[in-house]
Design a protein around this nucleic acid. Structure first.
Lengths: 343, 343
DNA sequence: ACAATTATTGACAGCGCTACCATCGCGTTG
DNA sequence: CAACGCGATGGTAGCGCTGTCAATAATTGT
């Protein structure tokens, strides 16, 4: 297919340049660094772009510049609504930028994560957002040699690869347990599912808070590696009271479990909070409308996504944050399920 | 930067070809059409690729071939867990393929959808998955001129752009109402939020089922364009009983609303199903564990995602489906909330 | 007023890959 | 035995854009 210099119909940068009466390279600069153009040319190119409806060819741009405008996002789960909120934050803020999001999920497998990171490295993303701080040594090495800004989200810890946006699951959990203890409860059960690293740290917070009050007892703990569901909450709770009938509170590592516990209590006609207090984690929307309303730890997931993508984009464009670690904190949302009955 | 023919460290297809003792073009064919190679060369190239750890440059490939290996996915919401399930199906099946997913959400704005489609068209995706069948005329035109396979998902209807994978919201809703009517309920309320096209069709099913029984009454209907939440379910229900105190059942366009109604009933000590039956839509996981367990319409969301991506990939590779419209149906999950009390 | 400096602009070459067509070798046929 | 067909392979020439650096125009200091 011998191609004429101007294949009719095809709008390339050359066509734009021709119409604007500038060289192609000047037209190119219009997109990459408009400030370098004189006002006159900038306007001429601008109107030429609009008149021709020019759309840049991203593949050609990537090939020539050795850069892409893709920001990779690695999350463990698409089902967990916690990540849905984070993603919403990421997408909302990325849409007004030139960058596009490449999303992958690892299904909580660190090997899958490693594979994904390797894939990303080969494609030279402009930036990367990964979940958590517990990468394998190999994954960590990949992240460190990836010459682009990297944000670790969902939690904070020592030695960030680059930037870190999250909160302390340990502190949040510790605070929740402290609250329950303040209510005079002593036999506080722990219900955990999935038991990924962040859930582990919530357990650590629980354990230490209980130990500090000299109330820790392994019989209060029921966990499983099975993924979380509401139904599972009921099942784990059944296991717990079978093992330890004298509990007076239950701390659940997430709200789905907490809802399942509430339902199971209703089924067994156990009064909440009369006999048993329930506290969840994440503060999903339904927690406030449950009957009784359920206490939870609010985490700022949408903001986490927003901040992560914003910081990554800023870093890509040379505006490195003064402080690479951003702690978004948490709020204990105290509701009926963990306080004295008002009625 | 005068570049030596073999810039050390950089593994290009040329390097692979050299090691394998073939021409670059033959190495290229190894990826695109391995069957065209003799067995001997195929093996030589294969081992060279592995030895060098060659990773293809996708930008160069896209530029030279005028094709990409990106499948665009356009959904209205990231928060709605219905789409989370669909996406999981899409991602799960795309991972073993060569294609990568480019996800965008429109936040239920048809203008945003139009914008996204325009963007996709410019980038020549290998395939496209869009939500629903109610595109604007402009969007529809874009889809029709996009020379790649297109799948419309979530519902089915007449005149597919190309392929269609979903189910009839109208039928599902009609079936749910028929079930409630069979239980002897007569004053069935309708609670709707968001009121996107698919919810509209659920309303149509409700209305027609009620009219067929000569029981339709506008006072039974409460809707809002506000996005769905559990809390909203309670609010809408409160509006409904204020307006129409004699209702004996509530049909909710989704499960979050249904859960909110259940909570509100508990709060007001209205017996479910004794005084009021509740039926939801989607059959999210928690519906089965609620107390009482909640009747819902199960939709095959994960399968919808899987089928959509599989059909699109097949179509890209020339294996067009015999039947472009796939109805995945629904199942009415009848539970305590809409049946006579057993106790 | 003239050199020195800075803001704009352009020419050239090439990013890594693949489409197209030519070529080669082999078995088959009249 | 020449001609033919076909599968396997290679050569050439870009895909549309941008990095580098040189060239030019505008601005400033002494």
């Amino acid at each position: 297919m011998a191609r004429k210099p101007t294949k009719s119909g095809k709008i390339r940068l050359t066509e734009v340049a021709k119409l604007a009466g500038v060289s192609p390279i000047t037209a190119s600069r219009f997109f990459r660094n408009p400030d370098a153009l004189s006002l006159a040319k900038r306007e001429r190119v601008d109107s030429a772009v609009k008149e021709l409806g020019y759309v840049p060819n991203l593949a050609a741009r990537a090939l020539a510049s050795h850069r892409t405008e893709v920001i990779g996002v690695v999350i463990p789960s698409l089902t967990n609504s916690v990540f849905a909120d984070v993603l919403r934050g990421i997408y909302d803020s990325s849409e007004q930028s030139r960058y596009s999001i490449q999303l992958t999920n690892t299904r909580y497998s660190i090997l899958q994560e490693e594979k994904m990171l390797r894939l990303f490295r080969a494609q030279k993303p402009a930036g990367l957002i990964v979940t958590g701080i517990n990468q394998t040594a190999e994954s960590r090495a990949i992240l460190e040699t990836m010459d682009c800004p990297v944000a670790q989200i969902m939690e904070i810890g020592d030695s960030p690869v680059d930037m870190m946006i999250g909160f302390s699951h340990y502190d949040a959990s510790f605070a929740a347990i402290s609250h329950i203890l303040e209510q005079g409860r002593r036999r506080i059960g722990f219900l955990g599912a999935r038991m990924d690293p962040r859930v582990q740290r919530r357990f650590d917070g629980y354990r230490d808070a209980m130990k500090a009050a000299s109330l820790f007892d392994p019989n209060l703990v029921v966990t499983t590696t099975v993924p979380t569901t509401v139904t599972l909450g009921g099942t784990l709770f059944a296991d717990l009271i079978a093992k330890t009938p004298d509990i007076d509170a239950v701390f659940c590592v997430n709200d789905d479990l907490a809802l399942g516990v509430l339902f199971e209590c209703q089924r067994r006609q156990i009064s909440v909070p009369g006999e048993i207090a329930i506290v969840g984690f994440n503060d999903l929307e339904f927690m406030a409308s449950a009957v009784p309303s359920l206490t939870s730890v609010r985490t700022n997931r949408y903001e986490m996504g927003r901040h992560a993508i914003t910081m990554v984009i800023d870093a890509i464009e040379g505006r490195r944050p003064r402080e690479p670690v951003l702690d978004l904190g948490f709020q204990l949302m105290i509701r009926e399920s963990s306080t004295p009955q008002t009625a």
